[in-house]
Design a protein around this nucleic acid. Structure first.
Lengths: 376, 376
DNA sequence: ACGGTGCATGAATCAAGTG
DNA sequence: TCACTTGATTCATGCACCG
């Protein structure tokens, strides 16, 4: 797990087992060039924020704030940052599968430039997600609002990509059965999760919290997917991907970060298959034609179906169509017609009388499906 | 109030009384050209979002979503939108005072382009603010996260502007004595606040809620300041500015919107000077001890206080503490104790009988505070 | 005057599979 | 690529109406 690959050994190698679940050491764009076209399912990118810090910042007690002033976060100008951003985004886009999606996280210092560039490069923005921090750093000078959030952009490769992965039902189930919103609340990375060096100092200045990555990965990937992180740092993406039964590829320049990430990922225990099973909606269940209900005898030709309030009714015909008012058609078409609508889900609209109460025919479809499941 | 000015009458007139508190009818950039250099203290801009909607969207009940499909939101391309954005931002920058600040609101469709352009034009970003909606529209198809927020960018005219207005202490005091964060929670504009035409339909598709504007204006302007809104719409900025003792200038193209805004603003009653002074004071709201109420005679030793439903009661002692069931303590400690809780806000928990009804003692604190305000 | 039910609606880049 | 079919999909709030 987490082999470290020297960049020179890679030349757009197609065999995934040469680079999957490894950290490629080298410059981000050069390393991306070594990966094959359309080879990763998702990308999580935490690029340098281009913080434009003037002098040092002191707390009210005069202690010095340990700001992000590393070499890799220094850009001479917006133009230089744009050139850098365009290069790594383009390289990512080539490597991403046509139905893959990309996440980029940033703050107000850089996220507007990144988002505009993504639009310029034909990524299609799906959402912007706000990470609200429960415990953000205060604003010490009292000259601005406390900067209490960061922004993530989630985008598909292009506007036409319709079948990207989004585990809507699992997210909703995990969120008290209401759909997941675009504002997420998580603590910053601290305590035992925060990697510290032998000197007790944090290894990386902007280590992201694992729960944040976990939601990203659970929302937009499937088990077994390959997730690329072109700014791997201390490997939060890799650690969470491994724990959640996904694969990763990391790109990182600094040996200290690579060392920390390798050890970290090696210690991760993946979850079992049962725990990883994602709740899915009706969409993913096998298709059942209404005629199957007729053929199996669950409903009978001549039987009357009605809507939930018995305002309209129709008769089942032997070919699996319905008839009412001299018209006939599928359960969906006729359901739409009797309501004067363009569309209708006949499975939930039409009901049958079980002797006591009206029940949707969708329940009979479930009976068929459970019978099919037993054949597995 | 809210005179409507034909654009032709204005030629960078310096005398502010010719355009202050009026709505200029005309194209945004052309109208901005008519205003003098460095003439407004703050700008709030709600530009078109450039939504690129495909076909129609239906709810699960097949009803049609009333989308924003107005002509003013149609742009041929990102490039066309950028040209438009650059033009109005540049014009705003000339009109803004050197120490003025600008707010721009948008969604993920446009805010990244706007933010990047602002940086390119040398605005200096101070914060990005997230407006979290309590009641956003759901995502009906379950293909994305519910889009539950919009983003505002707050920026000064340039990096060197250090003495912009930011009422840090007033914001902190209004926020339970912790500094105001970058994520704000407000409902969308609906109910009685939402302007409706004679046909019962909304006058403007994107009317912003007044509390949002109130926080913007209270945070970044002083009483008497001039606030420009280059996309005035139905005049939320003007209405809130007038109520809060500020001046406004609006620019709007559509006569229907101008008519609605004029009538709306005319009906606004400005707050009194005392109320505004309290709200904008540099110090936090003065702390009032319960004993001050006793000393001032608003409550009397021996008087009985109870909770809102008369389930528990306590007696006021001369030293400003309460006693009940053989225990005594502050209004907060005793309130917590009688409820079996760890903490309690005694000001809102305890009520007194004014002869007709039970009223919270917090109202008596307000009486003390307004008396203190009159001493200013 | 209430409480309960039903309905309308808000800045929305909102489906997937088959032939 | 287009046309057509199948059938999946919503949260909070305000207001009208009714008993």
């Amino acid at each position: 797990m987490a082999a470290v690959l020297p960049l020179a050994d890679l030349k757009r190698q197609v065999a995934p087992d040469t680079w999957i679940n490894s950290i490629i050491k080298g410059d981000c764009v050069a390393a991306l060039e070594a990966l094959p076209d359309h080879s990763v399912d998702a990308i999580f990118a935490d690029p340098p924020y281009n913080l434009q810090l003037g002098g040092n910042l002191h707390r009210p007690d005069q202690s010095l704030v340990d700001a992000v002033d590393d070499d890799w976060d220094q850009f001479a100008s917006f133009e230089a940052y744009d050139v850098f951003t365009r290069a790594w985004l383009l390289a990512c886009r080539r490597v991403l599968k046509p139905n893959g999606t990309i996440w980029v996280i940033g703050s107000y210092h850089n996220i507007f430039r990144v988002g505009a560039m993504m639009q310029d490069l034909n990524f299609w923005l799906l959402n912007d997600i706000v990470w609200r921090k429960t415990n953000p750093m205060p604003n010490f000078k009292g000259r601005r609002f406390q900067n209490a959030h960061e922004t993530m952009i989630w985008a598909s490769r292009d506007a036409k990509a319709k079948s990207y992965t989004f585990n809507y039902d699992a997210l909703k189930a995990s969120n008290d059965d209401v759909q997941m919103r675009s504002d997420w609340l998580f603590p910053i990375c601290s305590g035992g999760e925060r990697l510290k060096g032998e000197d007790g100092k944090k290894v990386h200045p902007t280590q992201k919290p694992e729960p944040l990555l976990a939601r990203v990965i659970m929302a937009s990937t499937k088990p077994g997917d390959v997730i690329l992180d072109p700014f791997f740092g201390t490997g939060t993406t890799g650690a969470v991907a491994k724990r959640l039964g996904r694969n990763f590829v990391g790109i990182e320049r600094e040996q200290d970060y690579i060392d920390a990430a390798s050890a970290r990922i090696a210690a991760v225990e993946p979850l079992g298959k049962a725990e990883l099973t994602v709740m899915t909606g009706k969409k993913q269940e096998p298709r059942v034609a209404f005629n199957t209900l007729v053929e199996s005898g669950l409903v009978k030709p001549g039987q009357v179906l009605s809507d939930a309030k018995r305002r309209v009714s129709a008769i089942i015909r032997a070919d699996g169509t319905l008839a009412a008012n001299g018209e006939a058609g599928s359960i969906h078409r006729l359901g739409a017609k009797v309501q004067g609508l363009d569309a209708c889900n006949g499975w939930t609209f039409w009901h049958y009388d079980d002797g006591k109460t009206l029940r949707p025919i969708d329940e009979l479809r479930s009976v068929i499906r459970s019978g099919m499941a037993k054949l597995d």
